[in-house]
Design a protein around this nucleic acid. Structure first.
Lengths: 235, 235
DNA sequence: GGCTTTTGGCAACAGGTTGTTACCCATTGA
DNA sequence: TCAATGGGTAACAACCTGTTGCCAAAAGCC
């Protein structure tokens, strides 16, 4: 039941896995720890991962190879873990698209700081949306799983959204409390301009509202547009 | 007929527009020059823009506002153009998501260098694909317009691709000459793992090939997968 | 209040896209 | 030559999305 950004740790040393996992969990992160690239891939398929901590020295495919592979798949944030002696790997790693690196041994406090920094500044929209939904703006208790485009309400009921519904919800979450008219929403979700008599947003919104259930999270401003309510209590 | 990354210049000074446009065109870029945010928006709707050069001082919405707006819309690369006296704008601008900035007056050579750097290191996949299609790997003469998902062959015939076809083509272009099996392609295009007897890739590929016409750009490796041919002559 | 006009909600429909299945052909190996 | 395997693709079904039309809610007007 992921309520926080989930972190995927890839390291072949079981002791380190244990240590880092415990520490991060203590700070409220959910952690999935695996030992090699093979397990990493299957974890990515099943879990909703927001960030990857990637050891460079791994049995089988090494961390740099995996790093490139992750980049090819998307823009999931990656932090490389390197030993002091592997200085050159860091450079290569950053070129391959890692977002940051840490040199072993590192303090746990530093690890936490890097994770927070990367998650914050990351362009990765998944993490951003996640936080927005979890911590802010009346969506407390809701969880959005972007990878699967599933939405879970505070009661634990899961609905799956279509691509269009998901994009629309994201548009609202990124502009909480702001009134947006149909043109703006169309631009944000479909990247096109409104035609005269274009009511596709109305309909899509109607569909989204139906899936959001009887909440009043998305309000109508007559003559103005719609907005994500910011002053909601719990459902 | 865009054959190169197209650059959108937003500046209210007609003389500067003229100068920069001429210089960049001399270096093979296509340039669309507009004078304000309103025109910028409509240009974005119509053109296939790979990078925005954005003056900070503009009539109507200023450059920083537009910068944020562009960021909200996607991750199109942005280079800000600021006057020396607007030092603080640069900081704000970078925070708002600009990729780089130039202080007026700047040399044209420097502008060109920054443009190339931003286009190269940009995560923006549009630019990357574009270059790949235009300059490398047997696709000489083909043009992919990602914004419209249209593909034009060397003879000038335009076909529009569906989302799935586009993603599949992109997967090939990003890994030219590499044999990819169905699982990998599924992962790259749909982000999911293959089911047993999953032949959706076969079918999608068949559809893509049909639109590519009688070329043999995508080859089959029996028992292995598919690859984008790298040793093609012209059509 | 009542009446009219405007605006939004949404059911129903149609068109487009995509995954599945089935059948056929090409390649391979004996 | 024949059988086995793998790939190509037509046909179908399911799903997603934009359009249209009708109704209700809200706002304006008297």
């Amino acid at each position: 039941m992921p309520e926080m950004p989930q972190i995927l740790l890839v390291d072949d040393d079981a002791e380190i896995r244990q240590l880092i996992t415990a520490y991060l969990q203590m700070h409220g992160y959910e952690v999935v720890a695996v030992g090699d690239g093979r397990a990493m891939r299957s974890a990515l398929g099943e879990q909703d991962v927001a960030l990857v901590l990637l050891d460079v020295m791994l049995p089988g495919d090494d961390g740099l190879t995996l790093c490139r592979e992750l980049r090819d798949l998307g823009n999931l944030p990656i932090i490389l873990l390197t030993a002091l002696s592997e200085e050159s790997d860091r450079v290569v790693g950053l070129e391959m698209g890692a977002d940051d690196y840490l040199t072993k041994p590192f303090s746990q406090r530093e690890l936490l700081a890097r994770i927070r920094a990367v998650l914050r500044r990351s362009q990765d929209q998944l993490a951003v949306h996640r936080v927005a939904l979890d911590e802010a703006y009346g969506f407390a208790g809701w969880v959005l799983a972007p990878a699967k485009r599933e939405l879970r309400n505070p009661q634990g009921v899961v609905v799956s959204l279509t691509g269009g519904e998901f994009d629309l919800l994201v548009a609202f979450v990124r502009h909480p409390g702001r009134v947006m008219n149909r043109d703006q929403l169309l631009e944000l979700t479909k990247g096109r301009n409104a035609q005269p008599f274009d009511r596709s947003i109305d309909v899509q919104l109607s569909r989204l509202r139906k899936k959001l259930g009887p909440t009043e999270l998305i309000k109508t401003v007559r003559g103005g547009g719609y907005l994500l309510s910011v002053e909601v209590t719990d459902g």
